[in-house]
């Protein structure tokens, strides 16, 4: 039972401290006029490591916390982060990508969903903002920064949740590859 609570507890701590660090420090550092947003990267990493449902739940919780902490319209970031966490988890479950740079691509996509989605939601909610090249430039820079920071965030999340994950698909795949998909006991004999 204690093991069952290990992952949610670790993810809760990760989400809480991640958002605090984001709000207290990272948001105040501007690179090329844009701040790095670690929250979607965290959500994507959790989805990629823990699966679609944990990813979606973590996304919802982190999104809600971000909305609360930043006094934004509740539900907007949650909705976007659910999509990010779920999509990253589905990628893991369906494709199980093994390439080391997958987190970079996933981070870039997560940032794109987050920034573009947030802008779209704001427009839908009637917040008037000029659609300009400046905005487009900022979105592009945010995506690039997201890709840049995706790998360290993924490594950090992996470190936090390692040991609490139910199963590692890579390990499973490696095992399947070395044993030909079968247990050594049930492997066909050499003479056949």
């Amino acid at each position: 039972m204690a093991d069952g609570w290990q992952l949610p507890a670790r993810l809760a701590a990760l989400g809480f401290f991640g958002v605090i660090v984001q709000v207290a420090a990272v948001s105040q550092i501007s690179i090329l006029g844009v701040s790095v947003d670690l929250a979607p990267l965290m959500v994507a990493a959790v989805g990629l490591l823990a699966g679609s449902l944990p990813g979606a739940i973590f996304g919802f919780a982190v999104g809600l916390f971000v909305d609360l902490a930043l006094v934004q319209t509740l539900g907007v970031t949650s909705l976007l982060f659910i999509v990010i966490g779920y999509a990253a988890g589905r990628l893991r479950e369906l494709r199980d990508p093994a390439h080391g740079l997958v987190p970079v691509m996933v981070g870039a996509v997560a940032t794109a969903i987050s920034t573009v989605g947030f802008a779209l939601m704001q427009f839908l909610l009637g917040i008037e903002a000029p659609v300009s090249w400046l905005l487009l430039r900022q979105v592009v820079i945010a995506i690039l920064l997201g890709a840049l920071f995706a790998l360290p965030v993924h490594a950090l999340v992996r470190r936090v949740v390692s040991g609490a994950l139910p199963d590692d698909p890579r390990r499973r795949r490696r095992r399947a590859y070395t044993t030909g998909g079968l247990s050594p006991l049930s492997r066909p004999s050499e003479g056949r």
């Binding site: 449902l53 979606a56 809600l64 539900g75 949650s78 909705l79 779920y86």
Partner: peptide, 15 residues
Amino acid sequence: MLIALVVVSLILLTA
């Protein structure tokens, strides 16, 4: 579960 999360988000948003 996923649908529930989305619905909760939408309810929160709307409310």
